[in-house]
Simulated assay, not measured.
Amino acid sequence: MATAAATKVPATMRAVQYNACGGGAAGLKLVEVPVPAAKKNELLLKLEAASINPVDWKVQKGMLRPFLPRKLPFIPVTDVAGVVVDVGPGVDGFQAGDQVVAMLNSFYGGGLAEYAVASENLTVKRPPQVSAAEGAGLPIAAGTALQALRTIGAKFDGTGKPLNVLITAASGGVGLYAVQLAKLAGLHVTATCGARNVELVKSLGADEVLDYRTAEGASLQSPSGKKYDGVVHCAVGISWLTFEPVLANTGRVIDITPNFTAILKSALHKVTFASKRLVPLLLSPNKADLEFLVGLLKDGKMKTLIDSRFPLSEASKAWGKSIEGHATGKIIVQMEG
């Protein structure tokens, strides 16, 4: 049922939206729009922070047409943190004042705004040890890293095998989480990144780090000669022919940004019962994973590395920085008071 806090919610809010596909950062406009209302099993959140992921600007670019965006104008971004200010019918796990992390519905977005509606089943409580910015970084990036590692065979309860994994583009949003999660699972980690981030990636636990611009890095070969049981592939432009020689007999390359060629290659591997396989991964959002990840931040077992922070009024600058593709960690938009 609605709470007393609902009476404090204004009729309108500032939000950043685009009116057409294409346009990049220049296509984003700061507007005043009505505050949405929480329907059945939904929460109305006053947002404190949101994180931009590459999928957000790929949607704007039209790469996921005709599925996304569902309708225009569109307020992008799904990964947010904030405070519950109202609850819809059927919600019994939250109340006004709860600090939370949420992943908004991809069809409707809404994260670049002062208020947003979130589904109860993709919202988790955020303990005081986890800041809004740290929590907002989790849903897509850390969730993808977690599911990719599980697909390889990583376990986080101490029962897993000591697998060898490669993480490409390890200094990006997904990669930095993947390195930390892989070490929590007891895996041997080889990682690739640019020279300026080698020490950072090592500090997160990577056993071997390759500068992708060197010949050794381009070949992806482990300095210790280990073959990889799995690859969390966060980069683009690396062919299967490069991966195949460095994989163990039943190695898997988990491609988190699969293109049409990768999907065809994966299908071919399936029908030919290939022992080494390319596996496309699309995130399957769920509450249990998000609770697990928030818990790791709370306990200090993992951290969100933040590249930069921008106020909502400068969201277009944050958007442009993400498109450039050189961020080290998460790009955060913070909602000013």
Rank of each mutant, 00 (worst) to 15 (best):
S222Y: 03
P223W: 02
P223N: 02
S224Q: 10
G225A: 05
G225D: 04
K226D: 12
K226A: 10
K226F: 06
K226Q: 09
K226E: 11
K227V: 01
K227Y: 09
K227I: 04
K227Q: 06
K227C: 05
Y228I: 03
Y228A: 01
D229L: 12
G230S: 04
G230A: 01
G230Y: 04
V231T: 02
V231F: 01
V232L: 00
V232Q: 01
V232I: 04
V232G: 00
H233V: 02
H233Y: 06
H233M: 02
H233W: 04
H233I: 01
C234W: 04
C234H: 05
A235M: 03
V236K: 15
V236G: 14
V236H: 15
V236I: 14
G237C: 08
G237L: 06
G237T: 05
G237Q: 06
I238C: 01
S239I: 07
S239W: 09
W240P: 00
W240E: 07
W240V: 10
L241T: 15
T242M: 06
T242Y: 07
F243S: 01
F243Q: 02
F243W: 05
F243H: 04
E244D: 08
E244C: 07
E244I: 08
E244S: 08
P245I: 06
P245E: 03
V246T: 00
L247A: 02
A248P: 06
A248C: 04
A248L: 08
A248Y: 03
A248F: 05
N249Q: 11
N249G: 10
G251I: 03
G251Q: 01
G251M: 02
G251T: 03
G251F: 00
G251E: 01
R252F: 04
R252H: 06
V253I: 04
V253L: 02
V253E: 02
V253W: 02
I254D: 00
D255L: 06
D255A: 08
I256C: 01
I256A: 05
I256Y: 00
T257S: 13
T257R: 09
P258H: 06
P258E: 05
N259W: 11
N259H: 12
N259S: 11
N259F: 13
F260E: 14
T261K: 15
T261G: 15
T261Y: 14
A262P: 07
A262F: 13
A262M: 12
A262T: 10
A262G: 12
I263K: 13
I263C: 14
I263F: 12
L264V: 15
K265W: 10
K265R: 13
K265C: 09
S266D: 05
S266A: 15
S266Y: 09
S266N: 10
A267R: 14
A267P: 12
A267L: 15
A267G: 14
A267D: 11
L268T: 12
L268V: 12
H269I: 11
H269C: 12
H269K: 07
K270P: 10
K270L: 12
K270M: 11
K270T: 14
V271S: 14
V271N: 11
T272K: 14
T272F: 10
F273L: 13
F273R: 12
S275H: 10
